[in-house]
Write a protein that binds this DNA or RNA. Sequence first.
DNA 1: TATGATATCCTTTTT
DNA 2: GGATATCATA
Length: 819
Amino acid sequence: MASNILEGLNEAQREAVVNFDGPSLIIAGAGSGKTRVLTSRIAYMIEQGVDPKQILAMTFTNKAATEMRERIQSMVPNKLSASKAREIWMGTFHSIFLRILRNCAHILEYPSNFTIYDTNDTKNLIKTIIKERGLSEDKYKPGYIASRISVAKNSLVTPGAYISNTALATEDRHRKMPELGNIYVEYCRRCKQNGAMDFDDLLLQTNVLLRDAPEVLARYQDRFKYILVDEYQDTNVAQYTIVRRLSLLHNNVCVVGDDAQSIYSFRGANVELILSFQRDYPDAKVYKLEQNYRSTQTIVEAANSVIEHNSRRMKKRCFSAGERGDKIRIFKAYTDREEADMVVGDLRDRVREGGDEWSEAAILYRTNNQSQALEDVLRRKGIPYRIYKGNSFYDHKEVRDMLGYIRLIINPRDDEAFKRIINTPARGIGDTTVERIAQIAKARGCSMWDAVDTLVDATPADAVERAIIRKVTDFVALIRSLSLSREVVGLYDFGMEVASRSGLLTFYRTQNTPEATSALDNIEELLNSLQLFNEQCEAEIRAGEREQFEKATIEEWLGSIMLATDMDATEEDGNNKVTLMTVHSAKGLEYKYIYIVGCEENLFPSQQAMEQMEELEEERRLFYVALTRAKQLATLSCAEMRFKWGNMEFSRPSRFLSEIDPQYVEADFDVRREQRPRNNDLTPREGESAIDVLRRRFDVRYQQKPAAQKSQPTDGGAGFRSRFGEHSSQSSHHTPKPQPKPQPTVNTANMRRIERPASGITTTSPCAFAEGERVEHPRFGRGTILRIEPMATDHKLVIDFADFGEKTLIARLAKLTKL
DNA sequence: TATGATATCCTTTTT
DNA sequence: GGATATCATA
C-alpha cells in the first residue's frame, strides 16, 4: 500500500526511510530534514507492522525526544497506532538508561531509588574526599578532578582499570597529582555508599550491567529489535558501546548524524565513532542527505566554504535549491557594548521591516557570559526576549535546598543532601557538629542520617553525643514526619509541606529583599512543577497509557528533574520573543534571522582551542552549526575591544570570518586585512589598563566632557562605555517608525583611523621549528616534532609528547619552548 | 556559630 | 566585574 508517510520526501530521504532492516548510516547535512527522516522511518516501521515496543530511539536532549514523539504521533494515521506510538522506548540516552538501571539496580548493588548526583554534588563529594586525605585543594582542583573522572567514565575506564593503568599513572604524576586514581576509587565507593549515581554513571553502570549480567543483556537485546540514534556524531565511547552491545542480536541499528556538526568532544564525544561506523557494521547501508531545505543558497555555500578548512571530513556536498538570498553581513563594533547596540538595533529594524515576529530572530554567542550586554540593550529597547541558560533554575540555592530535603527523604543514605540541609535554614548546627556526625557515621559504617536517626532514640553516656542529640532532635523529627506525609499526601501537598515545615518559606518571607522574593517565586515554580507532573500522570492514566496503580511518585519526578535542563522549559507567557543562547544550545534549531556575536579570535574560536588543531576544527564545526541555523539572513559581528574579567581587552576579528568565501559576504570593513596582528602602539604599557591606553591616545576628548552622562564620574570604564552605545536608545520603543541604524560615532571613526596600522606587511614567515627538534609545552610536557606542514600563514606541527602522545599544534599559537 | 570582609576563580561548550 | 568560597572576628 502506498503510504502517505512517504509523500513529499526526496529520493535519498525516501530510501533512508523505507530500508529499515539492517544497519544504516544516515549522513544528514544541516537542514536536510534529518528529524523528518528519522520520524518518518519510525512511523513507517509501525505502519509496516513493527511492534512499537521493539523500537528504541535515543536522542541527546529532552527537547529532541519530545519533538520526535510529537511528530510521530501526528504522522501515524489512526488513534490506535497513535497510542501504540507511545510504547516506543524514546528518550535521551540518560533517561533510557535511567529506566533500565532502576529496574536492575539491585544487580549492581545499588538501591533502586538511587539518587542522581549533578555536577555540584560531584564536586562537593570530591572536595570532601580531598580534604579527608589531607591533600591541598590548590593542587587537586575539584573541578579538574571531576572532569578527569568524567572523561574516564565516558571512556569506560573503571576505577580499577584506572589505577592499574600505568600510562594514566605516569600522566597524573606528570601533572603532580599522583593521588588522582585513588580519589577516583574513593569517589566511586562513596557514591555507591550514598546510593547515588552521577550523570556519567548512568552510562558507565549501564555498560557494567550489560557486560556482567548476560541475562539482562539478552533480555534487552531481544526486546530492542530496532535501535535508532540521533546526533550520532556526539556519542562517546560509553554510549557507543551500549548501542553496539544492544544491537548485536538483531543488527538493526540506524544512526543519523553529521560529522560536520560534532561539537561535544569535551564531553567525550568522538567524531571517529561516526567515521568508523562502516567498519563496525560492514554491511551498513549509507544514505546521504545533502539537500538543505532550511537556508538560502548563500548561507549553505558560505557554510560549506568555512567547513572546507577542516582536514577530517566525510565526503558530502550540501546544497540548497532555495533562493540565492542576501549576503552574509559582517559588522564590526568598537566595544562589546556597541556591538550589542548595533546587533539589537539591526535586529529590530529587520523584524519590523519584514513584519516578522520577534521569535523569528535569535542571537547566538560562544559563551554564556556574553548574554549580559545583549540583555541590557534588549531590556532598554523594550524588546521581548528569552534566554536559554544552562541549568540556571536548579542552580538557585533555594531550589537546591528544596531538592536536598526531598532527596534525603527519598534516599536517606544521601550524605551530600544531608549535609546540605542539616543547617538550612540555620538551626544552630555548625560545622563542628556536622563533622562529629560524619565521624560517628564513619565509625558505625552507616549514613549520616542513620547516625542521627538512631542517636536521638538512645541515651548515650557520652557528653559529645548528648550535645549532638540536643541539637538535631528537632531536625530528626522534621524529616521523620515529612517521610510519613510523603506516604499519604499528594505530590504538590508534599512539596508544600517540605517548603513550610523545613522553615524555608518563613525564612524567605521574613526578609523583605528582592532576592528573597525571587527565591519564593522559584520555590513556587518548583511546587508548580510537582503539580504539573502529577496532572500529566493522571492524564496518562485516563488515556490508558499508564496503569492505574502507577501513580506519580516523587522519585519519578525527581529523576525527571535531575535530567532536565532549562532548555526544556515550556513557554509560559507567549512565544513571541527574541531568543538568546549559546551556539551549542542552538544545535537542531532554526531561525529566519540569525545573529552571531563575538566573532573574534580568542573568543570564537576560544582561547584554549586555538593552539590545538583538533580543538580548532571543533570550533570551526561549531561556527558551521551557528551559521547553518539561519534560514534567510545571517549577520555576524565582532568588537574591537570587550570587557573580559573586569578590564578591556583588544581583540581581532575571528579567522572564521575570513574563511567564508568573500563572494557570499558583505562586510563593513576588510575582513581579511584585519586578520593582521594589531599596532603595537595600542598595547598597554606596564601597569596600564586598556582604558588608560585609550586615554593616552585620545586624551582630549575624554578629559573634556565627563558630564551629560548618567555614569559615575569616578568610574572611567563606565564613562567610556556609556559614550558609545547610547546613541540609538533615546527614542521611545513605542514609535513604530524605523529607527536610524546605529552609525559609528565621530569618536569611533577617529579612533579607527588612528588605530589602523598604515603599512601592510605580509605575514608568511619561515617556520621557527624543525623536524626532529625537542620542545616543551606547558600542558603536554616534552616531545619531539615529527612533521611540519605549512598552512596559509603558519605551520602545523605534529608533535609526539612523551606523556600525551601525538598532537597537532599550530606553530605560532602553541606555547612551545625549544629544549 | 553567624556575620561581614577578603580572596579567588572565572569564561567554553551540557546530559 | 561578579559570584562564590574562605577567613577573621565578635
